[in-house]
Structures are given as structure tokens and as C-alpha cells.
Design a protein around this nucleic acid. Structure first.
Length: 335
DNA sequence: GACGTAACGGTTGAT
DNA sequence: AAATCAACCGTTACG
């Protein structure tokens, strides 16, 4: 509601007293906790109250998690990759030149038959018609891009990247989110569980106000609040940007990791751990990266993968690991 | 009281 | 460089 703007933080306060930034995703750390709490049997309504996140949001995050295995928010902004890549346009032109009387639907079929496109990225008949009309029509000189702009950066086939094209048939993939796996790290979980207490009782850490407990994450939103001095190590550095810049992105775990990684910013170590393991979704289109999988062998591996790739990774999400978690989820700490 | 969901006002990023 | 568009966001309110 009220745009409260305390010196270092900004955001609004919801009915539960929680802080949020309108239009922006909840910090990953909180998302993780929502899932964690649910995993240990806390009811959504209680999670909502404890974390001061609207029940609608809790519901949404849990639903998504159950469906995709990802705790990450979807990719915000941007556009879907164009299906009419230069290569496709070129092929269309070739077909047209080879057979001036060819119909758009025939071109479409040929694109599929020739493997230029697959059913997921083949241009619609109307798109093909438009291309014929606008780009090919009379002129047929190569190298012509829409709007006369310079050739886009190698539009390398989105084929590899487009999630839809890679998902195994039959496996419903929520738009843009690919499964990920979650291996709930026992060790980290412990710390999280411990953290819960503090979180639940904000006053324990922040004093009367309590909002603070949520604010911590907003540091990601507010660079000013960042203790640059503390975030020294490379990992954090690397992680930093991503969360700020691509909070939702994910294609790199870093964003995720980051939320936890820089806990130095937040004085509580509450969110420290699990990060990498909860992984990720990717930017819808291009990234398929979503699948991440972070091998969760250990934090380090997670970090690894996290840091390196940006919106892309190398392999198809192969199977979303989504179901593997169905079983039981986190195994809590036993230790 | 729980919770799923649509409306709403917002941000983001590609075009 | 600015505008447009379509994606997603979390909160709110309703059922």
C-alpha cells in the first residue's frame, strides 16, 4: 500500500506486515523458505502468516513448485524468441524461389519436413505469408532483416534452447519452467530450520519492528543497502549481479545462490544455505536452462554452475526432474 | 478459517 | 531513444 521508503529500503507493506516490492518477485530466499516450511508440514496459511507473504503468493509458489520443481519466479519481460530467424526466412525464400506458386502452408510443411523447424517453432502460416509479403515479396536479396536492422546476433537456433522444443513429448511443461531437481541438503536445511525460528520471531533479530526480517532480502533490490565491502569474494560478486539484474532468471543458479550467498548483507544467516539446491528455472524461452539440475552434489558444484552460465546452458532439460521429488521432498536433516 | 484464483497495478526486457 | 508489447510479479478480494 503505502510506498514506504525508509532510508535504505523501499517497497510496500502488505496486510500481514510483510514487505514487498510491487511488480517484483519475492526474494529467492523467501521463496525457498516457503517451500521448506511446506515440506516440513507447515500449512500454507501458517507459512503465509509466518513469513508475512500473502497466502495467494504462497499458494502460487507452492503450486508452481509442485508442478515444476522450481522455486524460481518466471522470466519477466522480454519477448519470445522469434521463430522467423534469418535462417528460416532464407529457407522460405528458397522455397518460394524454387516454386513461386507455393502456398504458405506448403512452406510450413516443408520447413518441418526439412527439419528447419520443429513443430514448436515453425512459423504460422500467417507468419509465413507475412514474410513472403514483407521480406520476400518482390525482392529477394539475401541479408534482409526485418526493419532493415542489422543482423541480430547469431540467432542461433532457438531450437536447442527453446524449452518447448526440447521437452519430452507428453510431459507437460509449465510454460517456461522446467523442472529442476531438488535435493534438499540436509546440512543446509538444518541451518534453515534453525533460521526459521528467527524468522518467525522477528523481534528476535531485529527488534520490535520485525519487518526487518524481510527487508534483508530487499538488499537485492536496493543496491545502496549493499555493504559492498562485505561482498568481497568472487562468488558473491558474481552472484550479486545476477540477483539484482536477473532476479528471476535463473538460468544461473547464482541468482539463487546469491540470495543466500550474500547473507552477509543480511545479518542473519538465516538464508544461508540451501541455495543452490533449489534451483531453477530459466528464462523461458531461450534458456532452457532451466533445467538446471544442479547437481547438488554440493554447494560448490551448485555454485559452479551458478556462476558460469548466463542464460544458457548446454543441455536440454532433459527430463524434468520434476517427478523425482514427488516422493517426499526434503529429507530433513537428520543430523 | 483454508485456499484457489482473477483482477489489479506494477516491472522488465525484447522488439 | 523512446514506445510498445507481452511476459511475469505479489497483493488483494472474492468465492
Amino acid at each position: 500500500l503505502v510506498p514506504c521508503r525508509a532510508d535504505q529500503t523501499y517497497g510496500e507493506v502488505n496486510q500481514l506486515g510483510g514487505v514487498f516490492v510491487n511488480g517484483r518477485p519475492l526474494p529467492n530466499a523467501i521463496r525457498v523458505r516457503i517451500v521448506e516450511l511446506a515440506q516440513i508440514g507447515i500449512r500454507p496459511c501458517d507459512i503465509s502468516r509466518q513469513l508475512r507473504v500473502s497466502h495467494g503468493c504462497v499458494s502460487k509458489i507452492l503450486a508452481r513448485y509442485n508442478e515444476t520443481g522450481s522455486i524460481l519466479p518466471g522470466a519477466i519481460g522480454g519477448s519470445k524468441p522469434r521463430v522467423t530467424t534469418p535462417n528460416v526466412v532464407k529457407r522460405i525464400r528458397d522455397y518460394k524461389q524454387g516454386d513461386p506458386g507455393i502456398f504458405a502452408w506448403e512452406i510450413r510443411d516443408r520447413l518441418l519436413a526439412d527439419g528447419v523447424c520443429d513443430k514448436y517453432n515453425v512459423p504460422s502460416v500467417s507468419s509465413i505469408s507475412r514474410i513472403l509479403r514483407n521480406k520476400i515479396g518482390s525482392l529477394s536479396q539475401p541479408g534482409q532483416y526485418e526493419g532493415g536492422k542489422p543482423p541480430p546476433p547469431p540467432p542461433l537456433s532457438y531450437n536447442h534452447v527453446y524449452p518447448y522444443s526440447v521437452s519430452p513429448p507428453g510431459v507437460p511443461v509449465a510454460a517456461g519452467h522446467v523442472g529442476l531437481q531438488r535435493a534438499w541438503p540436509s546440512v543446509h536445511t538444518v541451518s534453515n530450520i534453525l533460521g526459521i525460528r528467527a524468522f518467525v520471531d522477528p523481534t528476535a533479530i531485529t527488534g520490535a519492528d520485525g519487518y526487518q526480517s524481510k527487508m534483508e532480502d530487499w538488499t537485492s533490490v536496493n543496491r545502496g543497502a549493499f555493504p559492498s565491502a562485505t561482498a568481497v569474494n568472487a562468488v558473491e560478486k558474481a552472484a550479486l549481479e545476477p540477483d539484482i539484474k536477473y532476479p528471476q532468471s535463473s538460468s544461473n543458479l547464482s541468482s539463487y545462490v546469491q540470495a543466500c550467498a550474500y547473507s552477509p548483507a543480511n545479518q542473519y544467516g538465516v538464508y544461508s544455505g540451501p541455495a543452490g539446491n533449489y534451483v531453477a528455472a530459466g528464462h523461458h524461452w531461450p534458456s532452457q536452462g532451466a533445467a538446471l539440475t544442479h547437481s547438488h552434489t554440493g554447494p560448490s558444484s551448485a555454485l559452479h554452475s551458478a556462476v558460469g552460465l548466463k542464460g544458457e546452458d548446454r543441455k536440454p532439460p532433459s527430463s524434468l526432474s520434476k517427478h523425482q521429488h514427488g516422493v517426499q521432498g526434503l529429507s530433513l536433516p537428520t543430523s
